[in-house]
Design a protein around this nucleic acid. Sequence first.
DNA 1: TAGATTGTTAATCGATTAACAATC
DNA 2: TAGATTGTTAATCGATTAACAATC
Lengths: 209, 209
Amino acid sequence: MEEKKISSAVIRRLPRYYRYLGELMETGVQRISSKELSARMKVTASQIRQDLNNFGGFGQQGYGYNVQYLYEEIGKILGIDREHNMLIIGAGNLGKAIINYSDFEKRGFIIKGIFDNNPKLKETKIRDIEVRMMDELTDFIRENAIEIVALTIPKEAAKQIARVVADAGVKAIWNFAHTDLNLPDDVIVENVHLSESLMRLSYTIANRN
Amino acid sequence: MEEKKISSAVIRRLPRYYRYLGELMETGVQRISSKELSARMKVTASQIRQDLNNFGGFGQQGYGYNVQYLYEEIGKILGIDREHNMLIIGAGNLGKAIINYSDFEKRGFIIKGIFDNNPKLKETKIRDIEVRMMDELTDFIRENAIEIVALTIPKEAAKQIARVVADAGVKAIWNFAHTDLNLPDDVIVENVHLSESLMRLSYTIANRN
DNA sequence: TAGATTGTTAATCGATTAACAATC
DNA sequence: TAGATTGTTAATCGATTAACAATC
């Protein structure tokens, strides 16, 4: 269906466009030119137009872009025009932070279940969602059509559980463990490596001019 | 001091090299060639050699790289050969996750204080670190030579507090709020935008071939 | 020494920016 | 219509990969 390959640089920027357009909508702005948006976002207008034209002509000469229309179109491109069933594995602080951040649910990422290996948490609830033990995992994924699994557990466990959930048929893993997961190519992995982020920050402190 | 500009693509990869070298050390590997490392990390050997040679010739022809030496040198480049005083603002789940993740402290990121605006948390402790109220913030930063502030608070508060801590003289902000912080150029900002990460994941689900 | 592998230059590839005709 | 601004092509810039002489 899609003809040309979209570069990952473009994909990285899409959610940021989406965020800015959402904020413009909230402040009642109805149209915006690539030039105005470029000033706000601190990227070139040329880049904005190039990026958007990977997906279609969303603007109009002499007018600019309709904010709400563009917002919705980017939402579709990002696949957040529909719901995604999600699972959190690891009911520690990081897991709880994701569970309690209601914006994800608003965007259609529905948390269907929480898993942990600590028996003390069995049948306790976080935001009305029951914490389950690992032996239920595979069945739960299949019965609830889980697409996304967030792994907020230590790296050794993450490597092992990643295989289990991949075998159970999830489409994507949101990996917070400090390791790479080596999985078949049809399983999508999106990494959030906080320690690497902190090291980049440290690099910039050490090497700023 | 530094002559040529290091590209951000290289900097993004450095912590990952560091992580792999650390794992090699743990498993007792003493030397490694760019070719072997490339197979493990799934990047080209050429890229590894180019990246490292931005900073110096760390290898030896016919031999490869000494794992421990390279690990330490990259540590120096990343600025984690010394301690950084750090502060967490926002004692919610995300803040607690950072506070309780002991690896950061091991790498020299010392959490000197925790701040929150909830009076109920006043003088409570998280991992033996007292939670303080916002009115103490500026003085505390100055008295404790705080270099890094992690912001794990909502976006409106983050924008405002970012200015306060920037004025108080911190070098860098580790920003977990779902917004960009517009600060003077001499304040480093490293963003962790979880919602953008989740949208990229969603994009990949929607557009995989 | 011969074999291995780096450091580095050159070639290629891809991403960003500039320019401008099309057009609202 | 005249002015504004897109969509898109061309030019530039930068990053990645390939190749190989240097050298351990």
